[in-house]
């Protein structure tokens, strides 16, 4: 009869939509998982601006569930996800970046992402001042209070462990060595949710068109 069923989702695909099979081949996800992520992506990308792209405000809203003020960490993560640097996270960028957080993703990818995250000024090094800034932001955003001298002690102690050549900055090689000895420092780089997103979020697979 030549009967072709059309998928209602196809006509409303987000502007940066990419083929889930291609994304799955380039990431730690299966095709079904990429499709599940698309359901999550649509929800996030239509939460405020309704344009199928994730804006910084939508990203922050999802992370904190409130439109609280600027967050250094959310800003940094958003900027690293926004690979094209055009102010929005497209679907492909969302999947490729989240893939680094898959528990099975290579540790070296996680370490490299974390290094970029902490290298606030993009100099290729994590400098003492940057680490101080990160710790102060962490404390501010969590309403914790530590004296300046306590912050200084934490930063100095961290540098005494990580900055092996003593030049007051952590280079990528020193970082690699440091995270090998301190794997807990990359704990936030693995999201158990991604291990099996289709099981964790069964509603996401309702629209899946492919069997893996």
């Amino acid at each position: 009869m030549g009967c072709v069923s059309s998928s209602p989702g196809r006509s409303r695909r987000a502007p940066g939509y990419e083929d889930p099979a291609v994304l799955a081949s380039q990431t730690s996800f299966t095709v079904n998982e990429v499709e599940a992520l698309y359901e999550l992506y649509k929800k996030l990308s239509y939460s405020i601006f309704k344009d199928g792209l994730i804006h910084k405000e939508e990203f922050q809203l999802a992370l904190f569930r409130t439109s609280k003020g600027p967050s250094l960490f959310a800003d940094r993560v958003f900027d690293l996800f926004d690979l094209k640097r055009n102010g929005v996270i497209e679907f492909g960028e969302f999947v490729r970046s989240l893939s680094i957080f898959h528990p099975k993703a290579p540790e070296s990818d996680k370490a490299a992402f974390a290094f970029k995250l902490y290298d606030l000024r993009g100099t290729g090094y994590i400098e003492k001042e940057e680490l101080r800034e990160l710790v102060v932001a962490l404390l501010d955003e969590s309403d914790l209070c530590l004296s300046d001298s306590a912050v200084e002690e934490i930063v100095d102690n961290t540098f005494s462990q990580a900055d092996s050549n003593g030049d007051d900055r952590i280079d990528p090689k020193e970082w690699e060595e440091f995270v090998k000895k301190n794997p807990a420092s990359l704990r936030n780089m693995s999201l158990p949710y991604l291990q099996d997103i289709t099981t964790a979020f069964p509603s996401f697979v309702m629209h899946s068109e492919v069997d893996d």
Partner: peptide, 25 residues
Amino acid sequence: RTCNAFQLISSMSSGFDLSGLFESE
């Protein structure tokens, strides 16, 4: 023993935790 800053950042939800993206369901 003083903790290291990266471990601190990694372990606190205010630091850098993407779980919120999935918990809004």
